[in-house]
Design a binder for these strands. Structure first.
Length: 604
RNA sequence: GCCCAUAUGGCUCAGGGGUAGAGCACUUCCUUGGUAAGGAAGAGGUCGUGAGUUCAAGUCUCACUAUGGGCUCCA
């Protein structure tokens, strides 16, 4: 047996650890390295080692589950003491001590009855046992510490040297909000020290991209304690960025046959009763009273669009009818989930509702998917798609749900688009396709969405006149491409680390005059650039040239141009180009051509 | 909402029971400079809010507010 053997993969792809394999095992060997399989074993064992350390350090420690997850591992447990960030070091130290004791990790089998008896005083383990059907259970033992576990584990503690406990958190037992809260510690482990170092470095780099940090550095947006949580303010730079994005999207919508509309921010509660929002989404709504009548601030824009559709009679010739709105919505998100711009209580959706016939669903869904793709490509985003099915709180017949869900799947499958399924994750009125983008530190956020809805048209008696002169009900597709400007700009900020492409950059050019006598030339250029929709700043403060160049370079703008005697004379500019990372001179005329070219890259 | 942590000038942070500190930013003056920090002076904080302990509270206690990390991934 090799020194570095920590397990096998059998022909079904299962990982078998050395304890389970015994003397003889066919199957591919898993060596101690950073392969996915090896890391799974290493991290799982590190979670156990952590549990052993916690068990020695704290009184009455009881353990729930300690799985390997996408990024490392965690263990959920309960102790009498409070555990904070500071305690992680203490636990890490204990873990290192335990490794030195060179325990073997051994495995033995017991029956479920034996297990129930063994863990009779441990309610957490009993909870774990209650979720297991098998009668044959296994225990892993290292030193005095034993834990119910199905493995796999490394054969000895010496394989667990490179780990780091990353955070403490509370976690509901089994993820159930009604269950009790346990303490969870997350950690990460690798096969070698350098990989761990690299990982920690990467996390640090990611933090530098955090949109909240860059957002305040660049003065894009802010929050204000006195005004309330989750309510973003857009500062001038951020507002500029945002309106540029809005303008790009406006044109893209018009080009694709959408028409702008706008509904009120607040509607009578009865309207929300009819829609089902009051019953299914009421917890997230802000309600108020006007002249003795109850009103609800809109959490979605669909109801407004339905009223507009119904205002004039519609024919089948009008379908598919596409209404879009940058709709401001308010939602009462739980205080604990608010997160910078990525989860707020007031935000603007790039929302649209497509009224169409059932036959038009598939082609319309495809069109939206293509729209999404062109926006994602514009910003070089990787994204994933997920189909969400009927949730617990929902309106409408199962049959209708089934049909709509199938429609979405077919549309994606016919175009060979990959997707995953989120059972029960749909909106209350229909199934949906969600488009998810990953943030700087690997968290996935829902951005765009496409939802099929047979229910609201029925509830609001939405109709059109069909070819045969009968009245029929259209289907509604709810869709958003960015999702919300807030979240999208948050992710965009992390994606570009604040160095936005020229077509949305808040300030696109900074002009640095060499001395005071060149200020008028700089202002002249500024005016001409504004004529072609380029936002500029002139850095003409009473500071040294070097200082002003340095400050300009730190602003994350696409171009810094320097102008002095030579430029004034030749009507040119000396350019520091962020994209090319070099300096060169251009005639001002040609510079404007180049800028227009880069502005055009934003067209979709 | 729940668990843990954090809260000091616009920003980043130091201080840790005895009457507030630094750097950057800001203001004024000198300097008018050809490619990443020229110099000098100055202004700015009831240390998140409210209670409590104490002769004395940014500093200790509690509550609230806000912020941060989590709360699907099944021995």
């Amino acid at each position: 047996m090799s020194e570095n053997l920590i397990g096998y993969i059998d022909n079904q792809g299962n990982i078998i650890d050395t304890q389970s394999a015994g003397q003889s095992c066919e199957g591919r060997a898993i060596e101690y390295d950073n392969s996915d399989e090896a890391l799974e074993i290493i991290r799982h064992s590190t979670a156990h080692l952590m549990a052993q350390a916690i068990n020695e350090l704290y009184t009455n420690a009881k353990f729930f589950v300690g799985p390997v997850v996408d990024e490392g591992f965690y263990y959920d447990f309960e102790v009498d003491e409070k555990i904070g960030e500071e305690d992680l070091k203490k636990i890490e130290k204990k873990m290192k001590e335990l490794i030195k004791k060179k325990y073997k990790i051994e495995k033995y089998e017991i029956s479920k009855d034996e297990a129930l008896e063994k863990f009779a005083n441990d309610e957490l383990k009993l909870a774990v046992l209650s979720r297991i059907d098998d009668d044959k259970l296994t225990i892993y033992k290292q030193g005095d510490f034993e834990d119910l576990c199905r493995g796999p584990h490394v054969p000895a503690l010496r394989f667990l040297n490179n780990f780091k406990l990353t955070r403490v958190a509370g976690a509901y037992m089994g993820g159930d909000e009604n269950a009790k809260m346990l303490t969870r510690i997350y950690g990460i482990a690798f096969a070698d020290k350098q990989s761990l170092k690299d990982y920690m470095k990467m996390m640090e780099e990611a933090k530098k991209r955090d949109h909240r940090k860059i957002g305040s550095e660049m003065e894009l947006f802010m929050f204000n304690e006195e005004s309330g949580a989750g309510l973003p303010f857009w500062m001038p730079k951020g507002a500029k960025l945002r309106y540029k994005l809005e303008n790009i999207l406006h044109k893209a919508h018009i080009k694709r046959g959408y028409q702008p509309v706008r509904g009120p921010e607040i509607l009578k509660a009865d309207m929300w009763r009819t829609s089902g929002h009051y019953a299914c989404y009421g917890e997230n709504m802000y309600l108020t009273e006007i002249d003795g009548q109850e009103y609800g601030i809109k959490p979605m824009n669909c109801i407004g669009h339905i009223q507009i559709f119904k205002q004039t009679s519609k024919s089948y010739r009008d379908l598919p009818l596409r209404y879009y709105e940058y709709g401001v919505v308010h939602r009462h998100e739980k205080s604990g989930v608010l997160h910078g711009l990525l989860r707020v209580r007031e935000f603007t959706q790039d929302d649209a509702h497509i009224f169409c016939t059932p036959e038009q669903i598939a082609p319309e869904v495809i069109k939206v998917v293509e729209f999404v793709d062109s926006v994602m490509k514009l910003f070089n985003f990787d994204y994933t798609m997920e189909i969400s099915t009927k949730p617990e709180k929902a309106i409408g017949e199962d049959e209708v749900w089934e049909m709509a869900t199938q429609g979405l799947k077919t549309a994606l499958e016919e175009n060979n688009l990959q997707y995953t399924i989120d059972e029960g994750g749909g909106a209350f009125y229909g199934p949906k396709i969600d488009i998810k983008i990953t943030d700087a530190i690997g968290r996935k956020w829902q951005c765009g969405t496409i939802q099929v809805d047979f229910n609201l048209p029925q509830r609001f008696e939405v109709e059109y006149v069909a070819e045969d002169n009968t009245r029929k009900q259209p289907v509604m597709l709810h869709r958003a491409i960015l999702g919300s400007f807030e979240r999208f700009i948050g992710i965009l900020t992390e994606h570009y680390a604040g160095e936005f492409p020229l077509f949305i950059a808040p300030t696109q050019v900074i002009i640095v005059p060499i001395s005071e006598v060149h200020n008028s030339y700089a202002k002249e250029l500024q005016a001409k650039l504004l004529d072609i929709d380029i936002d500029t700043e002139v850095f003409d403060k009473n500071e040294s040239l070097n200082k002003r160049i340095r400050t300009a370079e730190k602003q994350r703008v696409p171009f810094v141009v320097i102008v002095g005697d030579e430029e004034v004379e030749k009507n040119s500019v000396a350019i520091r180009d962020r994209r090319k990372k070099e300096q060169y001179n251009l005639s001002f005329e040609y510079f404007m051509v180049e800028l227009s070219k880069q502005l055009n890259e934003g067209k979709i």
